[in-house]
């Protein structure tokens, strides 16, 4: 069946793919279940981490050019950092207006 079943654990892509799927599931659960904006932000970071790990696993084992995946994951990290900076400043602006960052209470928009 699987030709790489005899390989040692850390040289098989399966282990990495399962860990990435687990990270993604944790991120989805946190995104659904957290009640504050910062908690949802943390869950989003978990999903970013899952995507990076998936990219790196497929890049290491199945890509003819291992540079492409590494550069792409580097770009993911840069975009995640930019996203965190913007999202946290929005969170702080919301906290100034509402005195709360619970997602239940932030229910009106206004210009």
């Amino acid at each position: 069946m699987n030709p790489d079943a005899a390989r040692i654990l850390y040289e098989r892509p399966d282990a990495y793919l399962v860990v990435a799927a687990f990270l993604f599931a944790c991120g989805i659960y946190g995104l659904l279940r957290r009640r504050t904006l910062i908690g949802m932000l943390i869950a989003g970071e978990l999903i970013f981490a899952a995507a990076s790990l998936n990219f790196m696993a497929l890049n290491r084992f199945f890509s003819p050019d291992p540079v492409a995946g590494q550069v792409f994951v580097l770009f993911i990290m840069g975009l995640a950092a930019a996203e965190i900076a913007i999202a946290l400043s929005i969170v702080i602006a919301i906290y100034r207006n509402y005195r709360s960052i619970r997602s239940r209470e932030i229910s009106e928009l206004g210009g």
Binding site: P13, D14, L17, V18, A20, A21, F24, A25, N54, L58, F61, F62, S63, P64, D65, P66, V67, Q70
Partner: peptide
Amino acid sequence: ALSRIGLSHPWIEPASRADG
């Protein structure tokens, strides 16, 4: 679902690999 896709898909290993 994700683990099933990852584990059951017939991935193809490349013949040659560049420098990483």
